[in-house]
Every structure is written in structure tokens, then in C-alpha cells.
Design a protein around this nucleic acid. Structure first.
Length: 683
DNA sequence: AGTTAACTCATTTTT
DNA sequence: TGAGTTAACT
């Protein structure tokens, strides 16, 4: 099983009797180690179903399952390979009753949360509500409840947030709903407070592997701790130098605490990089150098020196985009065989930096995709449909009710809904539950009541049919009937700006239905939600319960032959032969809030790690670009190269002459002069 | 209810 | 600068 592994990797794979921490430098084969370890554990007699591999994204989970399948074949289906959140859902659906949650609870998305918070805080101010959302999320990630949050509140604003949190939690209970943070917090509470549940889950897993361990937050640490128990049969795989989610609650304390909480912890470092050339790796090591070391390690590569890292200075962001495009074209023209478009990635700090790049790529007719963007399930036409499933599973889900009742318009206005809401509150019932209460008659016009009850009957009728539409064909048929019944196609036609948009949206709806039907047929890719026990036909309601955790339909990104544009955050874990880091300016890459923002040490260290992550995405060539002036608001400001460029210590490399470089330099000099003249005209 | 006009505000984002 | 949101109109 250890074929093709180096010494350190083999050690990591073979250490199965107790806790281990694998410090896996960028490109050092950590997925390889995890999948081989899964295989090794099975070889040593552990049942596949008793192994859990936890990741942070569905994409990572899907990739891991695929790679595991390559090693162990069908047994990979039984291994629990999923995200923290998916595992959390499983635990709470199975055992959440002891916390007062129905097994059919709903999972709210960020938008639902935001509107509930607005109501709880009695405001329409989105910025304020987002502030609360952020603060509450932080508290939850620290394991605080509303009461404790009030104690911990640092200022008046936070005190308000804590009060809002209190009301928000009451709402969640009333709606039988949870938010994303709860999917870690509730399983933790479950294990912490209920010994019999804890024993059950501890007995369930013989070994737990955690990917991207440096991204865990305080609650995830505790959850893992309770899950593995005192024996600590786990493998944490991570890289302290790639911790870039501090702003989301991830803390390196989790790495520091590990040797203390588990004295038997075996620490193994993977330092051989199989991804990048030495020139690239040297730049990476230099950049990360100034950061304090938790577990010192030095990456090395045996792939040869390679092309020197290029620094490209530009005049403006537009000019920068043009030069990036010119570089891609140049690399394609000068290499043999020429790289494919998919071999290129352009990475940047913030989403908005994609714009000029997109423009230049379009102009040059180079195909590209912007990674990130709105996820499939965030599209309004898909959400409009998903809420029906939520309502069918959980009639207490008022947010779902409100969206479903309004999506295809059915003549039920604000007024009516406000009345219904008041009545439901008074009766301590859900909106849906209030519909058929005889007392409602006294509150509403006959017409309004009739519309509401008609809607209610439709929900009930469709719910019954959804439950009984088993198998792929029955599911497909049901979905089409449902769309027909609620008149969804016409609704889209009436509410889209252009015919083309309506067609596109209807196409998304069809894609959604195909996907649902396929799942209902039992063709599930077990990487999400359920993990493991797949392949029995599921009811559509069960299928729908997993979608709150998904962002794309297929987790395997379609292998399109296009250039990737991505933020540095979203690029983590990926690699490309040719990478350009764009907009590497002081203030952009070490990001700076305002001109007068103090240089926060911790912040700077994380920015440095971000740069490190960017550099280490590159396999063969790397270029770093920056612009002399950038638009800020409506005026231009002079800009400096990022300090990280200096820190890469490229001087020796750049000095090395390349016959074409001279010519290029000459051409650039001319271009620069031309632009400086233009720049002088601008104020 | 739906459309326009003013107004604000610009990190990173998965689940 | 431009998108996205809100408030005020029609």
C-alpha cells in the first residue's frame, strides 16, 4: 500500500495506533497521504464505514472520494468522506431530538438569516444586519450562546447584537431551523451534554482524518476532540503556512493545542514538494520566511530550477490586464507543445480585480471562467423551488412559506401576510399551521382567506405526491407536474428582463429537475450529505434535504479548456502549470483598510500566507504583476509594489538575461514613456 | 405593484 | 467608477 510514497508520507500513513499531525507543505502530497491512509486502515482490518475523512469543501470531499476509489475501489463508497457541516447534519438529524429539534429541521442559508436578523433587530439596514450576522457567527464559532455573548459583548453595538441573537435563536427554534454555524455547534452540544450519544458516535468511528486542519475553528476543534475520545485515533493534516481563514474564525491555536491535549501526538512533516520548480519554491520560502514558525519546515523540490519568476510592472490596472493577456499568448506561442488554456490561472486578492482582466481576455477572445460567482443554488429561480421542499419537510419553516407563497404570484399581498403573521404569532403557530385554523376567518377577507387556503391545499397535495414519487421516472414526472401546477414557466417569462434571460433561467430549472430526478433514482454521488449509505432510491424530500450544503450541482467541476480567474482564497488546494498573480500592490495584497490603518501584525502574517498560497499554486511558471497607479473611487492614486515582491528575493533571478527579455524591456520602456506622458495629463 | 431616480459603498467566503 | 439597494413616484 505504500507504493510510490516517500519516507515521510509512509510514516504518516503507517501511524495508526494513536493521534498524528501531518504538516503537509504545499504540494507535498497530502491528499495522497489521506487516501493511502484510508486504504492502509482498511488493509489493517478497519471497516471502511468506520473511517471518516473530513474536509472543508464538497469539492475536496468529491476529489478525495474519487482518489480513494482509485485505490480501494467500491469500498470507497462506505467510507464517510464529507465536510464538517455534512457530518454535523447527519449527527443532528439522527440525534437532535434530545436538543428539541425535529429530524426534518431546515437549514437556513445566509439570505434567510439576514432577513430574520432584520426582523429581530427591527431594522431594514442590511449593513447593520450583516454586522450582526458576522458577530453572531463569530460568537457561535467560539462556542458562545446568546447569554454568554451578552456577557462577552465588548461595546454597545455588540450588546445590541447579543440581544438580537437571543431573539434570533428563539426564531430558529420556532422555525425548527438551524444556520450553518449550528451544524458544528449543535453536534458539539450533542456530544458534550449527552454521554450516551457521545459514546455512540465515538464507537462509530475507528479513525478520523481531517483535511486542511489549519482551517478549523474553536468549535470544530472541540467537536473533533469529542468525536475521537481519549484514545485520539485521528490524523490531522494541514499546513500552518496556508492558514488564510482567520477572518472566518479559523485559529492556529488548534495546531498549538494539539501536542498539549494529546501528549502521544506523532508529528510528521512532509517537506518534499512535487508540484513546483525550485525557482518558484524559493520565492515561496522567502516570502513565508519572515512569519514566526510554529513548526519550522523547509520545502524542497527535485523538479529542477525552471523558469525564473517574473515581475511585471504596469502602468494601470487596464495595462496590467493587457500585459497578463500578452503573457498568456506569449507562453502559448513560445512553448512546445503549447499549453492549453486550462493550464493558466490568474489569481488576485479581491473579486473586483477580475473585471479589467475579464475585459482584456474577452477582447483577446481567450476563453475563461471566473471561479466563485453566484452558486447554482443561490440563483433566485432555484431558491424559489427549493423552499417548497423545505416547506414539505418542515411546515414550521416560515421563511420557506413566505418565499413559496410569493414566488409565482398568487394575489396574496403584504397586507394579507402581515395579518396571517399576527394571527400565527398570537396562536403560537407557524404560518402554515395557522392557515386552516377556523379563527382565521375573523381576521381576513373571504377572498384573501380563500387564496391562502388554496395555496395551503396545493402545498399539501404536492407534498403527498412528492413523497410517493419514488424512482427516477416517477420523480421526473412529479417535478414536471409540479412546475406545471404552480405555473412556474410563465412566472419566469413574466419576471425576467429579457427573453434570453427567461430561457436561461428555465434551463437552470430543468437542470435542477434532472439532477433531483437522478438523485431520487439512487444515482447519488455519496460524497455529500449522507455519505456512505447511498444507492437506495430516495424520496425527493430526502434528496432535497442535502442541497442546503451544496453550491454546485456536480462537485466535479467540468473540465473546460479555459483560463481560470480566481481569488487567492478560492485557489487554495488547486494548481496550474502557469500562474499569474495580479495586482500585487502594497495595500492590495497586504490588504490595507484605509490609508491610516495600523499595520496589524497578525493581519500581515495572514496576508503573507495568502501570498505564499498564491505562489505555491504554480507548477512551472509564475509571474507577479503590479500597477503604478490604481483607481480609487473616482480618482487615480499612485501605487507601490507589494512588499512581498521584495521579499521574494528575485534579484538574482531577474538579473539573469534571456535574449528576448532585452527586446521586451526596450519595448516596455517605450510603452512606459508613452503612458507616463498620458499620466502626466491626468491630475 | 412596478418603475425610475437618487444614493451609498466598495476584503477574503465555504458551508 | 458602477453595481446594487432603497425611497419615492406613477
Amino acid at each position: 500500500m505504500s507504493a510510490g510514497l516517500n519516507l515521510a508520507q509512509t510514516q504518516a500513513v503507517h501511524h495508526i495506533g494513536g493521534p498524528s499531525l501531518v504538516l503537509a507543505g504545499a504540494g507535498s502530497g497530502k491528499t495522497r497521504v489521506i487516501t493511502h491512509k484510508i486504504a492502509y486502515l482498511i488493509e489493517k482490518g478497519l471497516q471502511p464505514g468506520r473511517i471518516a475523512a473530513i474536509t472543508f469543501t464538497n469539492k475536496a470531499a468529491a476529489e478525495m472520494r474519487e482518489r480513494a476509489r482509485g485505490l480501494i475501489g467500491k469500498a470507497a463508497r462506505e467510507v464517510v468522506i464529507c465536510t464538517f457541516h455534512a457530518l454535523g447534519v447527519r449527527m443532528v438529524r439522527e440525534d437532535g431530538q434530545v436538543l428539541g429539534l425535529k429530524p426534518n429541521f431546515s437549514i437556513l442559508d445566509a439570505d434567510d438569516v439576514l432577513s430574520i436578523l432584520k426582523e429581530c433587530g427591527g431594522t431594514t439596514d442590511s449593513a447593520l444586519a450583516r454586522q450582526w450576522q458576522w458577530t453572531i457567527s463569530r460568537w457561535k464559532n467560539e462556542g458562545l450562546n446568546a447569554e454568554q455573548a451578552l456577557q462577552a459583548a465588548a461595546d454597545e453595538a455588540e450588546k445590541v447584537a447579543a440581544v438580537v441573537m437571543q431573539r434570533y435563536q428563539e426564531r430558529l427554534t420556532a422555525y425548527q431551523s438551524v444556520d450553518f454555524d449550528d451544524l458544528v455547534g449543535l453536534p458539539l452540544a450533542l456530544l458534550a451534554r449527552h454521554p450516551q450519544v457521545r459514546e455512540k458516535w465515538q464507537a462509530r468511528f475507528g479513525h478520523v482524518l481531517v483535511d486542511e486542519y489549519q482551517d478549523t475553528n474553536a468549535t470544530q476543534y472541540e467537536l473533533l476532540k469529542l468525536l475521537v475520545g481519549e484514545k485520539g485515533h485521528f490524523t490531522a493534516v494541514g499546513d500552518d503556512d496556508q492558514s488564510i481563514y482567520g477572518w472566518r474564525g479559523a485559529t492556529l491555536d488548534n495546531l498549538k493545542k494539539l501536542p498539549i491535549d494529546y501528549p502521544a501526538l506523532r508529528i510528521i512533516k512532509l517537506e518534499q514538494n512535487y508540484r513546483s520548480t525550485s525557482a518558484i519554491l524559493r520565492a515561496a520560502n522567502h516570502v513565508i520566511g519572515p512569519n514566526p514558525k510554529l513548526f519550522p519546515k523547509t520545502l524542497f523540490s527535485e523538479l529542477g530550477e525552471g523558469e525564473p519568476v517574473r515581475v511585471i510592472d504596469c502602468d494601470s490596472e487596464e495595462h496590467e490586464a493587457e500585459r497578463v493577456v500578452a503573457r498568456l499568448q506569449g507562453l502559448r506561442a513560445s512553448s512546445n507543445p503549447p499549453p492549453e488554456w486550462r493550464d493558466f490561472a490568474i489569481l488576485y486578492r479581491a473579486n473586483h480585480q477580475a473585471k479589467p482582466l475579464e475585459k482584456a481576455l474577452r477582447k483577446a477572445q481567450i476563453p475563461y471562467k471566473v471561479s466563485g460567482g453566484t452558486s447554482f443554488f443561490d440563483r433566485s429561480e432555484i431558491k424559489d423551488l427549493c423552499v417548497w421542499f423545505r416547506l414539505w419537510s418542515n411546515e414550521d419553516d416560515d421563511p420557506a412559506f413566505l418565499r413559496a407563497v410569493a414566488a409565482p404570484r398568487r394575489g396574496i399581498g403584504h397586507q394579507t401576510l402581515a395579518q396571517l403573521g399576527d394571527f400565527a404569532t398570537m396562536m403560537r403557530s407557524s404560518l402554515f399551521g395557522a392557515l386552516f385554523n377556523p379563527m382565521l376567518e375573523t381576521r381576513l377577507s373571504a377572498r384573501a382567506l380563500a387564496s391562502l387556503q388554496e395555496f395551503g391545499r396545493q402545498v399539501n397535495d404536492l407534498q403527498y405526491r412528492a413523497r410517493h414519487a419514488l424512482g427516477r421516472e416517477a420523480a421526473r414526472q412529479f417535478l414536471q407536474d409540479w412546475l406545471q401546477d404552480i405555473g412556474f414557466e410563465n412566472y419566469l417569462l413574466d419576471h425576467s428582463d429579457t427573453a434570453a434571460q427567461a430561457t436561461a433561467r428555465w434551463g437552470n430549472v430543468q437542470e435542477f429537475c434532472d439532477w433531483m430526478a437522478q438523485r431520487a433514482g439512487g444515482d447519488a454521488d455519496p460524497s455529500e450529505g449522507a455519505g456512505g449509505l447511498a444507492s437506495t432510491p430516495k424520496s425527493l424530500l430526502e434528496v432535497a434535504q442535502t442541497i442546503a450544503l451544496l453550491s454546485t450541482l456536480t462537485e466535479q467541476e467540468k473540465e473546460q479548456n479555459v483560463v481560470t480567474l480566481s481569488t487567492l482564497h478560492a485557489a487554495k488546494g488547486l494548481e496550474w502549470p502557469h500562474v499569474v498573480l495580479a495586482g500585487v500592490n502594497e495595500g492590495v495584497l497586504p490588504f490595507q483598510q484605509g490609508e491610516d490603518s495600523p499595520p496589524d501584525q497578525a493581519r500581515l502574517e495572514e496576508e503573507r500566507r495568502l501570498m505564499y498560497v498564491g505562489i505555491t499554486r504554480a507548477q512551472r511558471t509564475l509571474a507577479v504583476t503590479w500597477a503604478r497607479r490604481r483607481k480609487k473611487g473616482r480618482d487615480w492614486v499612485a501605487a507601490k509594489p507589494s512588499r512581498f515582491i521584495e521579499e521574494m528575493h528575485l534579484s538574482a533571478d531577474t538579473a539573469r538575461e534571456d535574449p528576448r527579455a532585452k527586446l521586451r524591456a526596450l519595448r516596455e520602456e517605450f510603452a512606459k514613456r508613452a503612458q507616463t506622458t498620458n499620466a502626466a495629463d491626468a491630475p
